[in-house]
Design a protein around this nucleic acid. Structure first.
Length: 472
DNA sequence: ATGTAC
């Protein structure tokens, strides 16, 4: 399980790995004793230390409370590099599922009002949501030219084509699309994979979930976000499908061969990286931005399909609370310097008053959407003044068992029966897919979120519980 | 996460 790391407890919610060997900065993990492996030997802690060796990294290599082992970087990792000081960009710091993220809708409907319609709603959502490893998708794109429009315009293009409203875009990170997308940096293979998957959930931990607001922790913020106790919500968690995956694969390969020419060596080949200010760095960031726009359009399309079903079955509407990604690198200004902030399984959490927030949300801070594991709670948090890790927080419960271990632990069919008897409707999930996502395979989301709040990364706004789930 | 390996 990797070498034993020496950990210094700075506070009950902040642990430090001091620089050693080639580390340029310390590692900082925002965890509790309960979330830290007993022996200090866990592969993700070693990964935190490895990331600290990257050229140009500033302040620290950070781990969020839900951190666990990932490709090169830990999932739940945050690292920023100084762009004008040789700072690098690494696809491993973004992840294979570029701009994977979450969107949350609030319904004009209570849990009690839904009860007699729940089965019909879940049936409708099950039928309307393409999912799994196949190629079914909501939007049949006209061809590569239209795919390029999506890659450049993200949710804005989807709305322009009639798939949503301006109000939706007001509640999206980056108002629906990131700048500087460059479709020319995407291989033919990645384009082909993206052509037939726009408006599809995928598999793994991706899901569409009908939820109910169980409790509100911050009345003012909840009200501004459009949330109240007893209300029905819909959460959609998905990403950039095969397109993002192929882009990551392509650019890791390119960087592996380019790295020596920049004199960069890394302790793990999965940390392949190049300077942000290099042809390969610019190429990756352009392709990554295009994949991010694809992921946003993907969530917009699935949201529109959800709205149609919701309206038909319940006669009620869905208002977007927010859409935020948790796998992305962004060029941001912090402390007067331009930084390339990698967030991998970590969520941006802008503080109250931040200029990138829409006016109605600005007094309260950015909504942070935390999907729990299947059958457990999810949370809405908000960003705080004086946060840490470049205004970042956790992204979910965080895995405890590998998919392989999870399958050995539970039987998918039995798990489905258990969830259904707990009042959680399941549609479309394969037994194996369910077993991989069993709650026992994840950390306790309540503990993760409590630590995020204790560490001063974000504060709780509302806790949501599952009513029904559509999975791949 | 992923046409679960090119």
């Amino acid at each position: 399980m990797g070498r034993v790391m020496e950990i210094v407890e700075e506070t009950p919610y902040r642990f430090r790995i001091d620089p050693r060997d080639d580390m340029r900065v310390p590692g900082i993990a925002f965890v509790s004793r309960a979330l830290l492996p007993d022996s200090g030997a866990d592969k993700w802690l070693e990964q935190v230390a490895n990331v600290a060796t990257l050229p140009g990294i500033v302040d620290a290599s950070y781990a969020m409370p839900d951190a666990h082992w990932g490709y090169g970087f830990p999932i739940g990792g945050v690292a920023a590099t100084a762009v004008e000081e040789g700072g690098v960009v690494s696809p491993g710091g973004v992840g294979f599922d570029i701009s994977c993220g979450v969107r949350l809708y609030a319904a004009d409907l209570t849990r009690d009002e839904l009860a007699p319609l729940k089965a019909a709603l879940m049936d409708g959502l099950g039928e309307a949501t393409p999912r799994g490893m196949g190629t079914g998708a909501v939007w049949k794109l006209a061809g590569r030219d239209e795919l390029e429009d999506v890659l450049m315009g993200g949710s804005r293009y989807a709305v322009q084509e009639g798939h949503g409203t301006q109000r939706d875009l007001d509640r999206c990170e980056d108002f629906g699309a990131v700048a500087d997308a460059d479709a020319r940096q995407i291989s033919d293979r990645a384009m082909e994979r993206g052509l037939h998957q726009l408006g599809s959930l995928g598999s793994g931990n991706h899901f569409l979930e009908v939820q109910a607001v169980e409790s509100v922790h911050d009345e003012a913020a909840a009200s501004a976000f459009g949330l109240r106790v007893g209300q029905i919500c819909v959460m959609i968690h998905c990403g950039s499908r095969g397109l993002g995956h192929q882009i990551c694969t392509d650019h890791v390969k390119t960087m592996e061969s380019a790295m020596p020419s920049y004199g960069i060596s890394v302790p793990d080949r999965q940390l392949a990286c190049v300077p942000v200010r290099s042809p390969e760095g610019a190429s990756y960031l352009g392709a990554m931005a295009a994949a991010a726009n694809y992921a946003r359009a993907n969530r917009q399309l699935l949201g529109e399909a959800t709205r149609r079903v919701f309206s038909r079955v319940t006669g009620r509407s869905l208002e977007l609370v927010y859409d935020i990604s948790h796998n992305l690198a962004k060029l941001e200004t912090h402390g007067g310097r331009e930084l390339c902030v990698h967030r991998k399984g970590a969520t941006r959490a802008l503080p109250p008053g931040h200029g990138d927030l829409p006016a109605d949300l600005a007094p309260h801070g950015q909504p942070v959407l935390i999907p729990g594991s299947m059958g457990t709670a999810s949370y809405v948090l908000r960003g705080v003044v004086g946060g840490a890790a470049f205004a970042s927080t956790c992204h979910g419960a965080g895995r405890l068992l590998s998919r392989h271990q999870a399958i050995k632990t539970v039987d998918g069919t039995a798990l489905q029966a258990r969830l259904e008897s707990a009042g959680i409707a399941i549609r479309g999930a394969s037994p194996r897919g369910l077993a991989e996502e069993t709650p026992e395979a994840y950390k306790d989301v309540d503990e993760v979120v409590a630590v995020a709040e204790g560490a001063g990364l974000a504060t709780r706004v509302a806790r949501l519980v599952p009513v029904g789930v559509v999975k791949g």
